[in-house]
């Protein structure tokens, strides 16, 4: 195959080198903390490595070393899953609604755009103030959930727009001509066709919520989510235990991304 191809221009090699440097720039720092998290028990925050050990990972799970790593991880996990389910369902519904024009559609659209560009700290402050004034106790599952949804809905909606802009309605017409009800058409025709994109929305919303810091700051109440916990650690932890936590949570993110891709590939294969 390579023989039939035209010769690469010189620019290609410069651009390829530039791209390689960019990838190194993206992943290099992450790689250093990954290596340093295996620092020996007497090792510090920078190179050289002082032996190799799992000391800091063990340390991470001892209650006294860090605040409440286990609890905050579970809260972030649960919150991420709730945000994920709500975002997938609500974005799909909204995406279906936007296929027709209706009064107020531009308002909702611009609200979604506004939600994306309003600085996160303003959402945090606004919701915090609102709960403060009405003397409602903020919790991760109420105020922080709402704050996270304002961040994930715009992404979900924009992905659904991209999907339905390229969606052929004749499949639904055919289903209806064959006597399918509205619900059957959605369930057996539309949903299977957009399923891979919905998995994309699911992964997006889970990881965005799982890693969200600014919007959680004033809305999480008295119990920390994982990013808040990590942030607290940056100011008072000066051992590689911080890197161990970074490595673990990054590995967890990669697992989630991998699962999502696996699911998409599986869906594609079943359809084929």
């Amino acid at each position: 195959m390579a023989i039939t191809r035209e010769k690469r221009p010189v620019a290609f090699y410069f651009l390829a080198a530039f791209f390689a440097l960019f990838v190194l720039f993206l992943y290099g720092p992450m790689l250093t903390i990954f290596i340093l998290s295996f620092q020996g028990p007497n090792g510090g925050l920078t190179f050289p490595m002082n032996g190799f050990s799992f000391h800091w990972f063990v340390n991470l799970f001892q209650q006294q070393a860090v605040g409440d790593f286990g609890g905050s991880f579970m809260r972030s996990l649960k919150l991420g899953l709730i945000v994920m389910v709500v975002t997938v369902v609500v974005s799909f519904m909204a995406g279906m609604a936007f296929r027709r024009r209706f009064r107020g559609d531009t308002v909702v659209f611009y609200l979604a755009i506004a939600s994306l560009i309003v600085p996160s700290i303003l959402i945090s402050l606004g919701i915090g103030l609102l709960f403060n004034i009405f003397e409602i106790q903020p919790h991760w599952y109420s105020s922080a959930l709402g704050a996270h949804l304002t961040w994930t809905f715009p992404f979900g909606l924009l992905i659904m727009f991209a999907v339905f802009n390229r969606f052929d309605p004749s499949f639904e017409e055919a289903a209806r001509d064959l006597g399918a009800s509205n619900w059957q058409t959605v369930r057996h025709v539309v949903l299977p066709m957009v399923a891979p994109s919905l998995i994309g929305v699911a992964m997006f919303s889970f990881t965005l919520s799982y890693d969200e810091f600014a919007r959680t700051l004033m809305t999480a109440g008295s119990l920390n989510t994982l990013p808040l916990e990590i942030y607290g650690m940056t100011t008072n932890v000066t051992t590689p235990v911080l890197y161990a936590l970074g490595t673990l949570t990054t590995v967890f993110s990669f697992v989630v991304i991998g699962l999502a891709f696996g699911a998409v590939v599986l869906l594609r294969r079943r359809k084929a």
Binding site: P29, G246, T250
Partner: peptide
């Protein structure tokens, strides 16, 4: 990398 924690990426 966009799907991993911003704070961790800063610390790194």
């Amino acid at each position: 990398p966009f799907w991993t924690s911003n704070i961790i990426r800063m610390i790194s």
